[in-house]
Design a protein around this nucleic acid. Sequence first.
DNA 1: TACAAATAAGACTAAATTTGTCGTATATAA
DNA 2: TTATATACGACAAATTTAGTCTTATTTGTA
Lengths: 136, 136
Amino acid sequence: MIKFSRKTEYALIAIQYIANKGITEFSTAKEISDNYNISYELLAKILQRLAKNNIITSTKGVNGGYKFLKSPDDVTLSEIIESLNESYALTRCLKKNRPNKTDCQIADCCTLKNPVAIIQNRLNIFFDDITIRHLM
Amino acid sequence: MIKFSRKTEYALIAIQYIANKGITEFSTAKEISDNYNISYELLAKILQRLAKNNIITSTKGVNGGYKFLKSPDDVTLSEIIESLNESYALTRCLKKNRPNKTDCQIADCCTLKNPVAIIQNRLNIFFDDITIRHLM
DNA sequence: TACAAATAAGACTAAATTTGTCGTATATAA
DNA sequence: TTATATACGACAAATTTAGTCTTATTTGTA
Ligand code: SF4
Ligand code: SF4
């Protein structure tokens, strides 16, 4: 199945919300989770991850929250997905970081590998070209 | 996660195999499953589905099997995915056939819905443009 | 006609992944 | 000192995907 995970979907909703507030005002996890009826704990973790990967910046404590620093034109969908530790690799053999042993067993004889790599390249461009601006 | 399911992956491998044999020779499920070390039963079901949806044609009995009728240029990745009852709808709200009650609960207040629909349109074109020829 | 090879179809189980929860720690403004 | 907010990781529940098993049907050939 080709689809956004909830994690990605919630991240995009939150990013859109934060982006629309401009670069001065803070948004809190609670504020967003209330607004969209998303589990607070879940969304909080997602925002933490985005902050850790510098998609957004965070400020702790009272009156803190999250906001944007970068221009919405400079943050791509690729970056967002990757910062969530998600992937848009169409097949196992195309995953960047795969230190796990769950690798493909038939990679040796697989004739799909090469053609699918070409499709993957086109998909990479696709996701690189979509920015937060497209959500605003 | 954006990725091909095994079902799709196996389907593509099989289709590639069948397509490369031309339009005269038959390929059997056993032949393909042996060649690529794919579970026979699983692959068989996939091929049955592809046949049911006229991606390939099937002939029962001894010396039977599957082969192509259409030109590889005329079968798109979209059609293959859909014929397997899989989807490339990025979000729940974008699924074509969703008579189930597992619909999105926050669709009313969701501000991501519209921008994601535009991205979906571009993705549809992406998958419509890839044909079996791209696997050969 | 009997048999073997092959597709057809669906129920069922197992495995993997995703989604969501909980508890605890840390920082900061008032 | 307290309330508010992020940070982080372990865990549990739910869902989806992957794989197996069983039975039926079709068809060429010995
Ligand atoms: S090697 Fe082939 S079967 Fe294995 S993951 Fe890559 S494309 Fe899929
Ligand atoms: S309405 Fe919004 S949250 Fe619901 S599925 Fe569509 S995009 Fe996702």
